[in-house]
Write a protein that binds this DNA or RNA. Sequence first.
DNA 1: TATTGTTATACTCTATAACTATA
DNA 2: TATAGTTATAGAGTATAACAATA
Lengths: 145, 145
Amino acid sequence: MDQKDGFDLQIFLPYLLNQAAEESSIAFQEVYKSRYGMLRTEWRVLFHLGIYGEMTATEIGSRARMHKTKISRAVQKLEDRRLLKRVRDAKDRRAERLSLTDAGRVVYADLREVAAQYDARLTDRFSSDDVARLRDMLLILSTPR
Amino acid sequence: MDQKDGFDLQIFLPYLLNQAAEESSIAFQEVYKSRYGMLRTEWRVLFHLGIYGEMTATEIGSRARMHKTKISRAVQKLEDRRLLKRVRDAKDRRAERLSLTDAGRVVYADLREVAAQYDARLTDRFSSDDVARLRDMLLILSTPR
DNA sequence: TATTGTTATACTCTATAACTATA
DNA sequence: TATAGTTATAGAGTATAACAATA
């Protein structure tokens, strides 16, 4: 099919990014969903705690750029499944210090391994220089300016 | 905050892509939403018709990797707003040949201009070589293998 | 007054099955 | 039987306002 117009949707960055994000997320999504019944917000919270250890919901929110309502619900689900525990902060009783349970760490270790292999498979088509540059640019594009 | 773990969520490609896609879509989304009350599927269909001229829903679907149900609803909305017209195909009466109305072309021209400037602004932080490589890689990542 | 986190609500986006009409 | 497109329905994802408890 010929273009009647000079514009090409395939080079419009928001469109390209959305297509790439969607396509490259499907198979990973299938893993955390089928193995653990998790949603996107849930594995993200799980990963933050797995990576950084103890955090409050606010800290996760600012790091992941997730709104507190999303985090609140993800934390609830993870707690229901005994993957996460909360401790009321003694110095500021509004805040809760969140961390993974032993079971949560097992799940995290499993998904972390899946993610690492998944990422390796996604990037094995490119040179390591290109991948590094890609990540840099994506990180910049992720940051509001 | 120190990482307790070697894994870095900020380099996990599906996560990075999602963050970049989301951040880089917000302001453009605001334009087509506030000016024309459109949703994502609607501007995508509009753009396909603006770029390629007459297409059937199936053709749009295979090009945009959109399911026919999404297209059906987007087409309906665009038709309701008199931006699109349908002509029953005489040779295969199951299919409809879709094209923009004059009003649709005006809206397309406006949004196309916004998109071009928007894209330019997103990419002006990078060298043109880097941008070209970025688009190549995103296109590859968008394609199921 | 401001902040941490929760709940309610609505809207956007996606996925699937079942349907019609044509082929 | 298969294909083009529609409708119904549910689930996933996001955004916002209002709230309770604490600071």
